[in-house]
Computed example of a mutant assay.
Amino acid sequence: MALLNETEKVDFLIDLLDQHMQKLPDEDILRNYLESIHGFLKTNDSILQKAAISNSVLFMDNLAQSTSETDYLISYFEKYMAELETKLKEEPENDFLKGKIKGIKHAVVIAKMIKKGNEYQGEGISVIID
């Protein structure tokens, strides 16, 4: 590949983003992020450029926040599970504690699934734990 000038680099990136977006579902958060960058590169309108930058910054802020919250949740569940397992050693026949431990193990798995979703796609899965 020959060395590209600034205009050619922008045109190349626009085409590359077009190709990447075609591979993603229409209502995908990563696609929305790529569309923001794509829009920024394609337009000469300063208002649209500012909106594109704002959208991409918001995406990254949300991703960083959800990742740290998910890490906290995983840590909390694992710590709580360790406490319950210690209590279970004292009361090995306590079915209520066994059920709680099983539920917390499922919660850890779900939280880790959310984290993996965030790492790979910028979005996780929505889960309500009651």
Results as ranks from 00 to 15, higher is better:
residue 3 L to P: 01
residue 4 L to S: 08
residue 4 L to W: 06
residue 5 N to E: 08
residue 6 E to Y: 11
residue 6 E to W: 09
residue 8 E to R: 13
residue 9 K to V: 10
residue 12 F to K: 08
residue 12 F to V: 06
residue 14 I to T: 07
residue 15 D to Q: 10
residue 16 L to T: 13
residue 16 L to G: 06
residue 16 L to E: 14
residue 16 L to H: 11
residue 16 L to W: 02
residue 18 D to F: 03
residue 18 D to M: 07
residue 18 D to R: 12
residue 19 Q to F: 03
residue 20 H to I: 13
residue 21 M to F: 00
residue 22 Q to A: 12
residue 23 K to P: 03
residue 24 L to E: 04
residue 24 L to S: 03
residue 26 D to A: 13
residue 27 E to Q: 15
residue 27 E to V: 11
residue 28 D to P: 08
residue 28 D to L: 03
residue 29 I to C: 09
residue 29 I to P: 09
residue 30 L to H: 10
residue 33 Y to M: 08
residue 34 L to W: 01
residue 35 E to C: 01
residue 35 E to N: 12
residue 36 S to H: 04
residue 38 H to Y: 05
residue 38 H to E: 04
residue 38 H to D: 02
residue 39 G to I: 00
residue 41 L to Y: 00
residue 42 K to V: 02
residue 42 K to I: 02
residue 44 N to F: 09
residue 44 N to Q: 15
residue 45 D to R: 00
residue 45 D to A: 00
residue 46 S to A: 09
residue 47 I to C: 01
residue 47 I to F: 04
residue 49 Q to H: 07
residue 50 K to N: 08
residue 50 K to L: 08
residue 52 A to W: 00
residue 53 I to D: 00
residue 54 S to C: 04
residue 54 S to Y: 05
residue 55 N to R: 05
residue 56 S to D: 04
residue 57 V to N: 09
residue 58 L to C: 07
residue 59 F to A: 06
residue 60 M to S: 08
residue 60 M to H: 10
residue 60 M to P: 04
residue 60 M to T: 09
residue 61 D to M: 12
residue 61 D to V: 11
residue 62 N to R: 10
residue 62 N to Q: 09
residue 65 Q to H: 13
residue 66 S to I: 05
residue 67 T to L: 11
residue 67 T to M: 10
residue 67 T to A: 04
residue 67 T to D: 05
residue 68 S to E: 11
residue 69 E to R: 10
residue 70 T to G: 13
residue 73 L to K: 09
residue 73 L to H: 06
residue 74 I to R: 06
residue 75 S to T: 13
residue 76 Y to R: 11
residue 76 Y to L: 14
residue 77 F to L: 15
residue 78 E to S: 14
residue 80 Y to P: 05
residue 81 M to E: 15
residue 83 E to Q: 13
residue 83 E to T: 14
residue 84 L to E: 09
residue 84 L to Q: 14
residue 84 L to I: 04
residue 84 L to G: 06
residue 85 E to V: 03
residue 86 T to W: 08
residue 86 T to G: 05
residue 87 K to Q: 13
residue 88 L to I: 05
residue 89 K to W: 08
residue 90 E to I: 09
residue 91 E to R: 06
residue 91 E to I: 03
residue 91 E to K: 08
residue 93 E to I: 02
residue 94 N to K: 02
residue 95 D to L: 10
residue 95 D to W: 01
residue 96 F to A: 10
residue 96 F to K: 11
residue 97 L to I: 03
residue 97 L to F: 01
residue 97 L to E: 00
residue 98 K to N: 03
residue 100 K to M: 07
residue 101 I to F: 01
residue 101 I to W: 00
residue 101 I to P: 01
residue 103 G to R: 01
residue 105 K to W: 00
residue 105 K to T: 08
residue 108 V to E: 02
residue 109 V to K: 14
residue 110 I to W: 03
residue 111 A to N: 03
residue 111 A to S: 14
residue 113 M to S: 11
residue 113 M to I: 10
residue 113 M to Y: 05
residue 113 M to T: 12
residue 114 I to S: 05
residue 115 K to L: 15
residue 115 K to A: 06
residue 117 G to D: 12
residue 118 N to E: 13
residue 120 Y to G: 13
residue 120 Y to F: 14
residue 121 Q to N: 15
residue 122 G to F: 01
residue 122 G to K: 02
residue 122 G to R: 00
residue 123 E to D: 06
residue 124 G to N: 04
residue 124 G to K: 04
residue 125 I to K: 14
residue 125 I to D: 03
residue 125 I to P: 00
residue 126 S to R: 13
residue 126 S to Y: 11
residue 128 I to H: 07
